[in-house]
Design a protein around this nucleic acid. Structure first.
Lengths: 216, 216
DNA sequence: TTCATTTTGTACCGTTCAGTAGAAATAATT
DNA sequence: AATTATTTCTACTGAACGGTACAAAATGAA
């Protein structure tokens, strides 16, 4: 419904890669916001013409949704990967927040988060965006619960660790980092918060002694 | 520059109260966002005609700025007042967060915060909004520092209390509440966070024992 | 070769939006 | 009563925006 790539190989071939185009579309929406990123600007920045954009993605809203989905599959995913790939929860949480800091205040892209800083404000007006927000919280909460409870099972967190409490604060502090980045907080400040936030999340879960924390 | 109320009492008198109009303008921007709250809608909701709006407030951007300023003088101020008026810092912080919860997720008004959820996304496009954001952080940080340090002086917080650390977390957790309200978190959830956040802020400042906290 | 299919580029359309012209209305001042 | 200052209302304007018609171009299939 969104990416109508020539199914039977027939017809004039495309001159562009849809993912490359989407990456630039992400940047435009991220930097300018939904309304201010007008279709003419999107066409100029991607190097395509308006009809090509419309032919490939449908409407402006569809294009926005496609950009959001790609953003989640690349940027958002990289933060979660950082969490999962670490050896210990303590390091995982720290790496998540550090990765998030780069994603919301690093160089080479606008500040803030496409989802929370740009898409969320359009939720009430754009049906298809609202649909994304209806699913997202449950999905990310489920993934975090699975991770934290799994770490308890592995003995990397104490048995009494309160995953739900830790996750709630984890998400709150992440949201705060996003908003402060959008408000202009520099990368270094956010990286320091990443360290502080890690300690707070562990504390909130109930891992308050050294032996609770460095479990391997 | 914004509110040209008949200076010499001459001419046809206004049929409206500028503050009443601004309160409805606040609601419209708050609910719809800057772009989606078009001047026609603003006129209908306030009961004025477009030329009356323009005559009284200038441009759409000027009107937005006037709404932001009134919002700060009413809603934002009420949260700070709750902080200041409490007997102890612990109660003050709690009352601040509880008041904030009402302001961002209570009934009778849109969710989120006009400043952070609506004005912030327009910062890059609207010069006069940017000017507000350039001043605001310093102002609120100064007020909070004065409050916390004052409470140390009064003996309501321990001598070693780290105001700067507490303030940083205080603001982070407030920002998180705002964003979660905008994302749909119900009032009860935020009220619970208010309690948790209070404990975290006290802890982060270094008031970790009972005697540190209930100092009167 | 011819046909069907798809992309591309130019030029355009209808709508919506911020803002206003101009005249009538309403008051204080002289 | 005449004048000056201001607000109000109807109707409008010019620009910007999302989206598209149409024909040419480029490929695979028949």
């Amino acid at each position: 419904m969104v990416d109508k790539t020539n199914p039977r190989g027939r017809g004039r071939p495309r001159k562009f890669d849809a993912d490359v185009v989407l990456d630039e579309v992400i940047n435009a929406f991220w930097e300018l916001g939904y309304e201010a990123a007008d279709t003419e600007t999107l066409a100029k920045r991607t190097g395509l013409t308006k009809p090509s954009l419309y032919n490939a993605f449908g409407s402006k809203e569809d294009l926005f949704v496609a950009a959001i989905n790609r953003y989640r599959q690349t940027r958002s995913k990289s933060s979660f990967d950082a969490l999962m790939q670490a050896d210990t929860p303590q390091e995982g949480i720290r790496d998540y927040f550090l990765n998030l800091a780069e994603n919301v205040a690093g160089e080479g892209h606008p500040s803030g988060c496409l989802i929370m800083s740009v898409a969320l404000p359009t939720r009430d007006r754009l049906q298809k965006v609202a649909a994304i927000f209806d699913k997202m919280p449950k999905e990310s909460h489920a993934r975090l619960t699975e991770y934290f409870d799994g770490q308890i099972g592995l003995g990397n967190l104490p048995q009494g660790f309160k995953s739900a409490d830790a996750i709630a604060l984890f998400q709150d502090l992440g949201a705060a980092m996003i908003m402060q980045a959008r408000a202009g907080a520099p990368l270094e400040v956010l990286k320091n918060k990443a360290i502080r936030n890690t300690q707070l999340v562990m504390f909130e879960g109930g891992a308050r002694s050294e032996s609770d924390i460095s479990s391997r």
